[in-house]
Amino acid sequence: MTRAISILRATPGVSVQDQGRPGYLAQGLSRGGAADLLALAEGAALLDQPKNCAALELTGGAVTLTASDDMRLALTGAEMRAILDGAPLVWNASHTLPEGALLEITPMRGGFGYLHIGGGLEPPPVMGARSAHLAASLGQPVQAGDTIAVGADRGHRVGLCLPEGQAGNILRLVASLQTAVFGQDALARLEATSFTKDARGNRMGQRLVPDGAGFATASGLSILSETIVPGDVQVTGDGTPYVLLSECQTTGGYPRIGTVLPCDLHKLLRAGPGNRFRFRLVTLEEGVEAERSEALRRSALARTLQPLQRDPRDIPDLLRYQLVSGVTAGDDLEREAKSCVSI
């Protein structure tokens, strides 16, 4: 029998997501896939599996499920309440998902959270990917009664967690095609303004409400529709910025005041409504440098994992792990383990 998870309950806002479908921009289909690609990579690192394994993305939705076999799971992205047969699970960590056990995940403060399963979710691929592109009506949200196939799991380790990340509220921007349209005064004001993450947000984009006046431009309503990339900050006619996400439109005519660095997007995606953000314009060179160093960091994520709890059985493996990474073992472990279990 095929390994699978069975969805007992799902509210709107739960879907299967992978790295999406790059390559269809010319046909008007945006990449889609996980909004928080860092969270996807973190899940892959925790479960020691390829980054393109599909996971469940929860955007304001809750899900209850069981597994057909003993499996492994990992939880990343915006922290949510995860209960396995009545016991809470630590977020940003990997755990066992025993056959038949009841796993309930409920959003807490908002944002995009991810449930990864060892072997990856394997609904049938469409146009080269397993992710649902909800804006394009390609695939469906996950619903009660769904059974989702799970791939073969070649990994074994559980009980690992990610080091505590640096939460930040500065979103770095590089100039976009219409940045100059706004003028230097507006750009200075953009950097001086605090923005509040609005409850209005989905896989296409997130609205940010400025303290004070908006950023409307007189010429903005008649500019030519032009290519859009995820991270673009589009300013609609009333002056409110939207940060466009993985399911964004591929072209658009509202002016874009800048593009959020991909490596800063997770800050916005993991925060709940009401959180406050600032924009900072950086040069293209700074942006490229930040992206390149983030790509290096991301490719070495597995080496930063820490044991979730100090379990004697884990120590031999753990020592090997730490030595490979060049990080000193020994009493560091105690300290890291403590920082790790604190929620």
Binding site: Y24, A26, Q27, G28, L29, A135, A136, L138, S222, S225, T227, Q249, T250, T251, G252
Partner: peptide
Amino acid sequence: TIGFAPGQPYLGQLPPEWD
């Protein structure tokens, strides 16, 4: 061009008064 959403055409061009 095709863009914005999958398969979606931008059709043109209408006479100048439609600007």
